[in-house]
């Protein structure tokens, strides 16, 4: 059941971002409604990862506005001027936004369960016992209960990525960002990560997924966005868009990845 809410979970308007002299995002407008899965695809260097990183303000932006759950990211609006948020406020804004990286970035000096406990204990001030109970549950949910005491270097790529997802979920996020979560994995390990993500989508999580997995986009995505050259070139229902791409560049891109 979908409850229609007036304000989308993520609202991006006229977003521009440049690195030095190169403008990588040239005015992006995008809505991610509550409970939806939006898949962002595009050739490498198209700005799709940067777009994702602007949502939880891992990147500063040059112009435009990003709202998450109705809250303007990175700035406070007072009068008719924007004020940069102090670091503590930024941390508070990032807390309910989970992020999963292409290269996992698990903490190598902590075991799987310690990785999952880290956020609740350090950021939310949860007791270790409570955090451990929750972490055990989450590891079970991603199918790794028996790997709780392994260090990341003792886990396969797919297992590491599933721990990374559990680590994000431990913060009880209302939005999950996935930055090419399966691109660093061997082909046979991709499915176990996609299965966890599919499960997460079915549970009603709002997700933004930068991916090359068109099968996943077709099956799970509510919206597909094709980014090329810093602009959204085509968007729509993944099943329709993938079946009949209108834009030439999108058609060429699909010919290369499918």
């Amino acid at each position: 059941m979908t409850i229609m809410q007036a304000e989308p979970m993520v609202k991006i308007r006229s977003l521009r971002k440049r690195f030095g002299s190169v403008e990588v995002l040239k005015g992006i407008d995008l809505d991610v409604p509550h409970g939806q899965v939006v898949c962002v695809v595009g050739p490498s260097g198209s700005g799709k990862s940067t777009l994702l990183r602007c949502v939880n303000r891992m990147e500063t932006i040059d112009s435009g506005r990003v709202w998450v759950d109705g809250e303007l990211m990175g700035y406070a609006e007072r009068g008719d001027r924007l004020h940069l948020l102090p670091p503590a406020e930024l941390c508070r804004q990032r807390r309910p936004i989970g992020m999963v990286f292409q290269r996992f970035h698990l903490f190598p000096h902590r075991t799987a369960i310690e990785n999952v406990m880290e956020g609740p204990v350090t950021v939310l001030g949860a007791s270790r016992a409570e955090a451990r109970r929750q972490a055990t549950e989450l590891l079970e949910r991603v199918g790794l209960a028996d790997r709780a005491d392994h260090y990341p270097s003792q886990l396969s790529g797919g297992q590491q990525q599933r721990v990374a997802i559990a680590r994000s979920l431990a913060m009880r996020p209302k939005l999950m960002l996935f930055d090419e979560p399966t691109s660093a994995l061997d082909p046979e390990l991709v499915q176990e990560v996609l299965a966890v993500m599919r499960d997460l989508a079915a549970s009603g999580m709002t997700m933004m997924v930068v991916t090359h997995e068109m099968g996943f986009a077709r099956e799970v995505g509510d919206q597909l966005v094709f980014v090329d050259g810093g602009v959204i070139v085509e968007r729509g229902d993944p099943r329709e868009v993938l079946a009949a791409p209108k834009n030439d560049r999108f058609r060429t891109f699909l010919g290369q990845v499918l």
């Binding site: 939880n56 891992m58 941390c91 508070r92 990032r94 807390r95 936004i97 989970g98 992020m99 990286f101 970035h105 698990l106 903490f107 880290e118 956020g119 350090t122 950021v123 990374a164 680590r167 994000s168 913060m171």
Partner: peptide
């Protein structure tokens, strides 16, 4: 980045 994404 991973730590900051957790809100640390």
């Amino acid at each position: 980045e991973a730590a900051e994404a957790l809100g640390m």
